[in-house]
């Protein structure tokens, strides 16, 4: 299994994700956003940060990076695609996940640890959680999830809402913190599981996120 962490200019959680994947003994490598062909990777991670400065709108420029063609192909092939924070914003801008992420309801960047509910414990990205409430770090200024009524109804009907905020920090619709596409292989969330894998830093609730993915050996061997 090979995992790619896409490095967009301005991504700043590349190493956080890379080290977390290495911690789980995954064969991870950092791939430049100018690389279009991602065929060799069975899982692709879009990390947090401020891709291209996020000057126009979060993720709006990154969706045009060459690597996004490879990401779209991976999504279509049923390979795993994960977007954390800015990565989630990029996936919605690219249309690989429904909805949009807007400026926080109360404007301003927030960095904190918040309580999340595991709304769907059966997904590829949450199956290893043995509790339904967890704590993860957030660090964003545009995490306010929005979708129209029809999309929201569809997300609910297909159990696509994976994580919700217990105490909504950013105004997200229905407290949505993380969702998956209908096929179940493309996932995005605003909180940072990769920052919560080492006991030294005081929080290990991100570990089960990675363990969930690791449980799906069937998917991870796909591209080898």
């Amino acid at each position: 299994m090979r995992a790619a962490v896409i490095n967009f200019p301005g991504s700043n959680c590349v190493l956080d994700m890379y080290y977390a994947l290495k911690d789980f003994r995954l064969d991870a490598e950092i791939v430049d956003a100018n690389q279009e062909n991602l065929d060799g990777f069975s899982a692709i991670f879009l990390p947090g940060g401020f891709s291209y400065g996020d000057y126009l709108r979060t993720g709006a420029i990154a969706r045009f990076a060459p690597a996004m063609k490879g990401v779209a192909k991976a999504a279509k092939d049923g390979r795993l695609v994960v977007g954390i924070c800015n990565g989630f914003q990029i996936l919605t801008e690219a249309g690989l996940l429904p909805g949009a992420l807007r400026e926080n309801a109360k404007p301003g960047f927030i960095c904190d640890e918040i309580t999340l509910n595991v709304a769907n414990p059966d997904s590829i990205f949450s199956s290893a959680y043995d509790k339904l409430q967890i704590t993860l770090p957030i660090a964003h200024g545009a995490g306010n999830y929005y979708a129209d009524a029809q999309t929201l109804a569809s997300l609910k009907a297909h159990q696509q809402i994976i994580f919700t905020y217990e105490d909504n920090p950013n105004g997200s619709l229905d407290d949505i913190a993380g969702i998956v596409n209908q096929a179940g292989n493309v996932f995005g969330m605003m909180p940072h599981p990769e920052r919560a894998v080492d006991p030294l830093l005081g929080n290990t609730d991100g570990r089960a996120f990675f363990q969930s993915i690791l449980q799906r050996k069937d998917l991870l061997t796909h591209a080898d």
Partner: peptide
């Protein structure tokens, strides 16, 4: 104030704002 600052990026911050001193591990 400090909740507006990303104190955790790079995932090395052991003791965060609000501590006597901030502490960062060296990987």
């Amino acid at each position: 104030f400090y909740r507006h600052f990303d104190s955790m990026v790079r995932s090395d911050t052991v003791l965060r704002p609000g501590s006597d001193a901030a502490v960062l591990r060296i990987r």
